[in-house]
Amino acid sequence: MAAPAPEDTYDKVLGAAVELFAEQGFAGTSLQAIADRVGVTKAALYYHFRTKDELLDALLRPALNELDRVLDAAERRKGQAVRQRVLFEGYVDFLLRHRTLAVVLDRDVSVGSHPAIRPRLESITVRVRGILDDSERPVEFRVASTVAMGGIYSAVAVFPHLPDDELRSVLLDIVRRLLTPRGGRAAASGAD
């Protein structure tokens, strides 16, 4: 039987790593465990990743780049309500595409506070706050928008087996209700 192609091994290592990080945490997962899960030697794993830190970066960098694109799209829109709607919809879709990573980040705080990741997450947090911050709105709205962001993340991590379309629909409906002033139009909706 032929050895897997290096690209194949790379993708399999990433897949096994995210599964094991979700199951055992980042600190609780060794490179040997990842190699065993993939069915390769530790030397074959070292061909792609010398350390777990390199592996973590390879897992998170593409996802965080994608989240930056969601934020870029929201920031380009005119009007606070439209920016917020684009952010919430993009964030839900982003988390649904990266459910396992959301679980890893939710369950293992060491990943989010890792020195290689923390500055990037802090930058993203600042950008999210900039989109959500609407000092013209009552404090109730500002608190609701913050609750909505955290709730989306938590729900994706807590309900990993709900189908994507069902969870997306439920989450966006809840966000709409949270951000709709009593007796008014949805604050996070509007035309482009």
Rank of each mutant, 00 (worst) to 15 (best):
Ala5Glu: 10
Glu7Phe: 13
Glu7Met: 08
Glu7Leu: 10
Asp8Ser: 14
Asp8Asn: 11
Thr9Met: 14
Thr9Ala: 14
Tyr10Met: 06
Leu14Ile: 10
Gly15Asp: 10
Ala17Glu: 00
Glu19Val: 09
Ala22His: 07
Ala22Gly: 11
Gly25Phe: 12
Phe26Tyr: 15
Thr29Cys: 11
Ser30Phe: 13
Leu31Asn: 05
Gln32Ser: 14
Ile34Val: 15
Ala35Gln: 07
Asp36Glu: 12
Arg37Glu: 12
Arg37Ser: 09
Val38Gly: 01
Gly39Pro: 00
Ala43Arg: 13
Leu45Val: 03
His48Cys: 05
Phe49Glu: 01
Arg50Gly: 08
Lys52Tyr: 08
Glu54Leu: 14
Leu56Ser: 06
Leu56Pro: 02
Ala58Glu: 09
Ala58Tyr: 06
Leu59Glu: 02
Leu60Cys: 07
Leu60Ile: 05
Arg61Ile: 06
Arg61Met: 09
Pro62Ser: 09
Asn65Glu: 14
Glu66Trp: 01
Glu66Tyr: 03
Leu67Asn: 01
Arg69Thr: 13
Val70Gln: 00
Val70Cys: 03
Val70Lys: 02
Leu71Cys: 01
Asp72His: 09
Asp72Pro: 00
Ala73Gly: 11
Glu75Pro: 04
Glu75Ser: 08
Glu75Phe: 13
Arg76His: 11
Ala81Val: 06
Ala81Ile: 06
Val86Gln: 04
Leu87Ile: 08
Glu89Trp: 10
Tyr91His: 08
Val92Ile: 14
Asp93Ile: 07
Asp93Trp: 09
Leu96Asp: 05
Arg97Gln: 07
His98Asp: 04
His98Ala: 05
Arg99Gly: 04
Arg99Asp: 00
Leu101Thr: 01
Val103Asn: 00
Val104Phe: 06
Leu105Thr: 00
Asp106Asn: 13
Ser110Lys: 08
Ser110Met: 04
Val111Ile: 06
Gly112His: 02
Ser113His: 15
Ser113Gln: 14
Ser113Gly: 13
Ser113Trp: 10
His114Pro: 03
Ile117Pro: 03
Pro119Ala: 07
Pro119Ser: 09
Leu121Cys: 05
Leu121Lys: 02
Leu121Val: 03
Ser123His: 13
Ile124Leu: 14
Ile124Tyr: 05
Thr125Tyr: 13
Arg127Thr: 00
Val128Ile: 15
Leu132Ser: 00
Pro138Arg: 12
Ala144Gln: 01
Val147Leu: 15
Ala148Ser: 14
Ala148Phe: 05
Ala148Cys: 07
Met149Cys: 01
Gly150Trp: 11
Gly151Trp: 07
Tyr153Thr: 12
Ser154Phe: 13
Ala155Pro: 05
Val156Thr: 07
Ala157Pro: 10
Pro160Cys: 11
Pro160Leu: 11
His161Asn: 09
Asp164Asn: 15
Glu166His: 08
Glu166Ile: 12
Glu166Phe: 11
Glu166Lys: 10
Val170Met: 11
Leu171Met: 10
Leu171Gln: 01
Leu171Val: 07
Leu171Lys: 03
Leu172Phe: 10
Leu178Trp: 06
Thr180Asn: 02
Thr180Gly: 02
Pro181Arg: 15
Gly183Arg: 03
Gly184Glu: 12
Gly184Thr: 04
Arg185Leu: 03
Arg185Lys: 08
Ala187Met: 10
Gly190Lys: 00
